[in-house]
Design a protein around this nucleic acid. Structure first.
Lengths: 197, 197
DNA sequence: CTATTATACGGAGGGTCCCTCCACTTGATG
DNA sequence: CATCAAGTGGAGGGACCCTCCGTATAATAG
């Protein structure tokens, strides 16, 4: 989506050095501003990077492209946790561990992720690579649990993601509340027993 | 918050007839546009009502005031359902019935409610009366279940609301998915048994 | 019915966004 | 160097929320 992705493609001419440098400056500026302000404007990002808005738009044609570029790195961390949990834990422990880790992570970036989620809600067909990798990570963990019979089979990993993601970005929740609700969702994730009442 | 609320206060001079009429026209126009478009602009609302934007802002000083006014009526319906369920069903049946009804309702107004939720997230201290009544309705049902021992005690009604509300407005979910996830949350809401694994 | 006045109206325009466009500049290459 | 595609900067278009204030009018008093 961004120029960066196509950087290595057709080497008719390599990317110019200043373009490369500006790309990195812009990305760093965006990350800083999203962390500091929660949300920010394209003008502010360009200004902090010391370039004009035209340059920003050359590298990231739409606002969502900036957001996704920042998001991309974050997702790598979460995916790594999922893979580690699957490799080192029992099916249920992996689900429990990973969902808690996911919520802990998402909670820390709530303002930023709220912006991202809004972009997806306005534009559902826009499902960026990063998000798909994230959903794949949850699927990995959840489907392994389902295969082992410790997770109910009538729910998909994507649905769990859709339930927990918005919860984490809900401004009115504290970290403790998120943790408690994850616990509750985990209970709900277990295979249902015959109705106890 | 709106002029309407203060209509009956000090009758030094009654509200003018044209003002009253415009207030109703604006509210109707806003409701129609939110239903048809999902979201809309202040200019569009004023235009459909056949008045200038100045008049719109006289009646509803901020955009959120329009949204809340439309929201208010909707909440009345949901609250009525909660009260009926509490009056006519067993504690657990009331929880089950009401949460399903809540999700069905919220799903139908998802675009509109998304806008409302975003307003709350941007501005957490802005918890309008209507929302509080809605949370109170869920609390009513959930706390009755907790009192009867059929709902786990470490979760509040507000938290259930915060979990289900965002889920309903998540654009990527179908109605069926929402129903299935409610079922899962209901399972999670039952008092936990000793860990089965 | 007219005069008075608080109330209400309309819409121009300010400020903030996202984004486009294009004249100008600069780095890479022969 | 000379060339020129690649890159840059920022003015400005369009959409939006909201403010301001001159004008119009409904309610009241005489």
């Amino acid at each position: 989506m961004t120029i960066q992705d196509e950087r290595a493609e057709s080497p008719g001419r390599p990317q110019r050095a200043d373009a490369r440098r500006n790309h990195d400056l812009l990305l760093q500026a965006a990350r800083e501003l999203f962390d500091e302000e929660g949300d920010t404007s394209m003008e502010a990002i360009a200004k902090r990077a010391g370039v004009g808005v035209g340059t920003l738009y050359r590298h990231f044609p739409k606002r969502i492209d900036v957001v996704e570029a920042v998001y991309r790195d974050d997702v790598d961390q979460v995916v790594a946790v999922a893979e580690r949990d699957v490799a080192t834990r029992t099916p249920w422990e992996a689900v429990d561990s990973f969902l808690h880790a996911f919520v802990a992570y998402a909670f820390g970036k709530r303002r930023f992720l709220t912006e991202l989620r809004e972009a997806f809600e306005k534009n559902p067909e826009l499902k960026c690579d990063a998000r798909e990798r994230l959903e794949a990570a949850i699927r990995l963990v959840v489907e392994r649990g389902q295969g082992a019979g410790v997770v109910r089979s009538d729910v998909t990993g994507d649905e769990v993601f859709g339930l927990l993601g918005p919860m984490c970005t809900s401004a009115s929740f504290t970290r403790e509340q998120c943790d408690r609700l994850v616990g509750m969702v985990l209970d709900g994730l277990r295979p249902p027993v015959a109705a106890s009442r």
